[in-house]
Amino acid sequence: MSRIEVPERLATGSVAVAASGVTVQIDGKRILDDVSIDVRAGEVHALIGPNGAGKSTLLSAITGDQAITAGSIDIAGRPLGDWALRDLARRRAVLLQHNEVFFPFTVQQVVEMGRAPWQRTERERDDDEAVAEAIAATDIARFTDRHVPSLSGGERARTALARVLAQRTGILLLDEPTAALDLRHQEDVLRLAREAAAAGDAVIVVLHDLNLAAAYADRISLLQTGRLVVTGRPADVLTPERITDVYRYPVEVMSHPTTGATIILPVR
Rank of each mutant, 00 (worst) to 15 (best):
A217G: 07
I135Q: 10
R163V: 01
R268P: 02
S221D: 05
R120M: 08
R184I: 06
L183Q: 13
A53Q: 04
L10R: 14
E112M: 08
A93D: 06
A130V: 00
T106W: 01
R227N: 09
A196C: 11
L207A: 09
D175S: 03
F105C: 01
D218E: 13
P149G: 08
R92W: 02
G42A: 06
S2M: 13
P234H: 08
D33W: 04
Q25L: 06
V253M: 04
V131F: 13
A137Q: 14
A157H: 10
R120E: 11
R242I: 08
H147C: 04
A16Y: 04
V44H: 10
R158W: 05
G13Q: 08
E187T: 09
I204D: 12
M113I: 01
G52E: 04
A53V: 02
A196M: 07
D34R: 13
Q25W: 00
L192M: 12
E8D: 15
A193N: 05
R92Q: 14
P266T: 01
A180Y: 11
R120G: 08
Q224G: 06
R168Q: 15
S36L: 02
R184K: 14
G114C: 10
V205M: 09
Y247M: 09
V22Q: 06
R78T: 15
P50V: 02
T57V: 02
T57E: 11
E122G: 04
G77W: 00
A76D: 15
R168H: 11
R91W: 03
D82F: 01
T225E: 14
L59W: 04
D87V: 00
H185F: 11
L88E: 04
P50I: 02
V24H: 09
D127K: 13
D33R: 06
